[in-house]
């Protein structure tokens, strides 16, 4: 077990990850300086953790091999798209209202149609964020839905040629895709809060029962914020606090929270609250004779007393 090799190993890992992930960044159209930013953030955090003596603070990044030119054009294009996206993010609501109303949309079509091609992308990538569609082929997933949507709006009184309508409504399609079919139908009638609803159902997908509990509570149950952070955790706590406090009577409001509380309890029991000394490793063999335990551990990352140690192999001998 050694603390001395930690800087070397971490250096190697960081360099390797950054070098190996570079093509992915290219593929996703993320600029190289973001990768550099990731590296510097990562390094400075590792250094700041003081888990070992890092001599070279933020050592020179590995000279990234520069076959960049082949990707250059694609990158610029992607960067443009991104710029557009970031603008579009700010005002998603503005795009949405026209869609539900056929006539309204008809009025705006001359403007909407050219812009839509661009604006459609941000929406798609929004939903890409939740992992539904492969990023490289967002456009190609759209056409199958066109007829249905166009038809719906035509039936609603629109006089638009189908193709025209389809183009105008493109932004909706990723929305519909990202949503479970049942939800699509339910929410189709509610015109006002498109964006929040989209995020709502994606919550339900992986949801626990507690979220189901909240949904019927208000007709706007779909207006939960996107899953950016845990603000949603605060809401159930606030509402639950008045009734049940910490009581286990209700089903767990958030199982993750509960787990962490248990862990804390465990720590408190043993008198060492706060940061746990921990070992991540693999085991080859674990054996017990009466109360004597022997185990062979491998590839361990040990964090003890604020320092990191690594071992290739460690024999553990414990008595229970």
């Amino acid at each position: 077990m050694s603390n001395k090799i930690v800087p070397t190993i971490y250096r190697t890992v960081i360099d390797e990850v950054i070098a190996a992930i570079k093509p992915e960044f290219d593929e996703y159209g993320v600029a190289e300086d973001v990768l550099a930013e990731l590296q510097s953030k990562w390094e400075s955090r590792v250094i700041a953790s003081h888990v070992a003596e890092f001599e070279t603070p933020a050592a020179a990044p590995p000279p990234p091999t520069q076959p960049v030119q082949s990707h250059q054009i694609a990158q610029t294009q992607q960067a443009l798209h991104q710029a557009v996206q970031s603008h579009a993010y700010a005002q998603p609501v503005l795009q949405m209202p026209p869609m539900p109303h056929g006539t309204y949309a008809g009025l705006h079509n001359p403007y909407a149609a050219p812009g839509v091609g661009v604006k459609a992308e941000p929406l798609e990538s929004r939903h890409l964020l939740s992992g539904s569609i492969s990023p490289s082929t967002p456009q190609y997933t759209l056409p199958p839905l066109n007829p249905a949507l166009a038809g719906r709006h035509l039936a609603a009184g629109g006089v638009l040629p189908p193709g025209y309508a389809a183009a105008a409504y493109q932004p909706m399609q990723p929305v519909a895709q990202a949503r479970p079919p049942a939800q699509t139908q339910q929410t189709a009638g509610q015109s006002s809060s498109r964006i929040p609803q989209v995020d709502g159902p994606s919550y339900y997908d992986g949801s626990d029962d507690d979220e189901d509990d909240r949904a019927p509570g208000g007709s706007n149950g779909a207006q939960y914020p996107p899953r950016t952070s845990h603000p949603s955790v605060a809401a159930p706590q606030a509402s639950g606090a008045s009734t049940a406090g910490n009581g286990g009577g209700d089903e767990a409001i958030n199982s993750d929270l509960d787990d962490s509380e248990e862990d804390l309890d465990e720590d408190v029991d043993q008198g060492t609250a706060g940061e746990t000394d921990i070992v991540f490793c693999t085991y080859d063999k674990v054996a017990r004779v009466k109360n004597k335990w022997k185990c062979v551990l491998k590839d361990g990352m040990v964090h003890v007393n604020g320092r990191d140690y690594l071992f290739a192999k460690c024999t553990g001998e414990f008595e229970w």
Binding site: T12, D299, G316, E317, F318
Partner: peptide, 21 residues
């Protein structure tokens, strides 16, 4: 991937751990 590979390739040190389970 990188971490696992690097650990296997470059970490050779060993240790013995004793304690009360």
């Amino acid at each position: 991937k990188s971490l696992a590979d690097t650990m296997v390739k470059q970490v050779k040190s060993k240790a013995i751990l004793k304690g009360h389970l």
